[in-house]
Nucleic acid binder design. Structure first.
Length: 259
DNA sequence: ATGACGGTGTGGCACCGA
């Protein structure tokens, strides 16, 4: 069973790449972020033709998330129930897989701009609300996955310049403490369950030849619950789509679970 | 210190992302 997350930075622009990628990588579940389109413009038919059920939660211009699944989905929840938010950032659903139900939370975490800004304060409030939601969901769904664009580097290993970028956005102690809090709920960073190449990143700046110089960050993650941890057999970042013409600035992260 | 690149919306640019 394969699960993946990918910030596509506009699904309108990236749909052909998503369909190509799914044809080459027929994952069971794909969480998408930054759709940047409203639900009436969501390409449900094209995705269905590729063999996927879908549930979308979009908005105009910014944000927007969706879950694509080869297995039927139910109990879809949009955004964080106890956190009023104008921004479409979270979609949760239960997938009925042959191995049993799997709860998947797919999120586009707040960027936060810079410490000390209103956006950063919003990020910290949003992170606290997310933790509460994940805590509740874990109580009901032991087989749980939290995937998405976290906009947090968990560790100094996860950034190209840990010294120069120390304390800047995506690298602050507050953001990393929230990441640890998620792990403390009983989740595991599936990427770090396996040996990985040094300087493994999932995002690279479009500017200044970021990808070519591997000046990136690992900010896209797939966290899995205690019950799923023994089933994880591999996790990798697929850099291939970043080499496409008109790429997203993010690359997909792919997790393999044993059946 | 700033902008660099790319997407959107709307407009001749500004805003946002990370």
């Amino acid at each position: 069973m394969l699960l993946a997350t990918w910030n596509v930075n506009s699904l309108s622009v990236r749909l052909p790449q998503v369909l190509d990628w799914l044809a080459a990588n027929p994952v069971d579940v794909l969480g998408l972020q930054e759709l940047k389109l409203t639900d009436d413009k969501f390409p449900q038919l094209e995705i269905e033709s590729a063999g996927y059920h879908s549930a979308a939660f979009g908005q105009k211009t910014y944000n927007g998330v969706a879950l694509l699944s080869r297995h039927p989905m139910r109990d879809v929840v949009r955004n964080l129930p106890h956190f009023a938010d104008e921004q479409a950032r979270v979609i949760s659903a239960t997938l009925d897989t042959p191995q049993g139900p799997l709860r998947v939370i797919n999120a586009y975490f707040v960027n936060g701009q810079a410490p000390g800004t209103d956006k950063f304060a919003y990020k910290l409030r949003w992170l606290a609300a997310l933790s509460q939601w994940v805590r509740e969901q874990l109580q009901q769904h032991p087989r749980l996955v939290l995937m998405g664009d976290f906009n947090v580097t968990p560790d100094d290993r996860d950034t190209f310049d840990p010294v120069g970028l120390a304390g800047t956005i995506h690298h602050t102690p507050e953001e990393r403490a929230h990441f640890q809090e998620l792990l403390g709920l009983g989740l595991h960073d599936s990427f770090r369950l396996f040996e990985q190449p040094e300087k493994s990143f999932s995002w690279w700046d479009y500017r200044m030849l970021g990808f070519q110089k591997n000046r990136g960050m690992r900010i896209d993650h797939i966290l899995i619950s205690d019950a799923l941890k023994p089933l994880a057999s591999a996790c990798h970042i697929d850099r291939a789509p970043r080499k496409n013409k008109q790429p997203s600035d993010h690359a997909p992260v792919v997790l393999t679970l044993k059946d």
